[in-house]
Design a protein around this nucleic acid. Structure first.
Lengths: 137, 137
DNA sequence: CTAAAGCCTACTAATTTTATAGAATTAATT
DNA sequence: AATTAATTCTATAAAATTAGTAGGCTTTAG
């Protein structure tokens, strides 16, 4: 399951994607429209900024806007930014690889292979879902 | 990502699937072979029993054994038993449906549809992985 | 100078996860 | 009947994660 944070991030991105080009959205407006606690959303938008998915303008009349086209922001990107690995085990992850602490011999592990296959399929599916595709509904 | 509990459950089931027919395995043996804390494994095996995936024999020379063929135990089953929903949001779940607390109107939600599609694909993939398929490697 | 916005850090409360402990129960063997 | 070795059950605890809050700082338009 997605964390609240990831869900909120998706909702915020959907909001931004539905605005006119060059429109800048205030945190307050996104929070109200998408029903997200404002202070929590602030942090999420900052994370999205650090992830180079949105840009911001500071000061009065500032706010946030999409940096990339909605077609170029996939569910996989957002999942990785907030919830981390897409694979079911760290040892099967491309971007967040780690050994399992309890694993005696990774090459002999019966789980890894199957879970790597799952990762490939899930990843492909997640890369097929973009902010733009969600807006189109 | 899978929880430790789910991973341990998978490892325990793999162990059981590799034993001779009618063999009964002690918790201690599974724990040692699969590198799982014994007391934690006890609880997991009980959960597997309550989930009707394994059977047990009590008393001296007791232990656990698979109730179903390894072909009939899928990754989806185990995920649902320990980690719950396979869908990314509760509102997109078949077996663990719940409304999102922050959702204004579920029918209008842009997220649900895409996430339902993901669930279908992930579920299909997870149902394709069985204990038997993992053992075959 | 002021108002209104984003930026940043720290903290907190609740929940979940990952175990551990110990007693009760069951069953085979002596 | 006693012993031994196993599962079963309930409670507890420590650690990590999640979700959210608080408050001050910085930036920019007017």
């Amino acid at each position: 399951m997605l964390s609240q944070k990831t869900k909120y991030a998706l909702k915020a991105l959907l909001y931004l994607a539905q605005q006119d080009a060059n429109h800048i959205s205030k945190t307050t407006d996104i929070a109200e429209e998408a029903n997200i606690p404002k202070k929590f959303l602030e942090q999420i938008l900052l994370d999205l900024k650090r992830g180079h998915l949105v840009g911001s303008k500071q000061g009065k009349f500032g706010g946030y806007y999409l940096l990339k086209s909605g077609n170029d922001i996939t569910l996989a990107d957002i999942h990785r930014l907030f919830d981390g690995a897409i694979a079911l085990l760290p040892c099967a992850s491309l971007n967040f690889y780690e050994r399992c602490s309890d694993c005696k011999d990774e090459d002999e592990c019966l789980l890894r292979h199957g879970l790597t296959a799952i990762r490939d399929e899930t990843l492909k599916a997640m890369q097929g879902i973009t902010i733009a595709s969600l807006v189109k509904k």
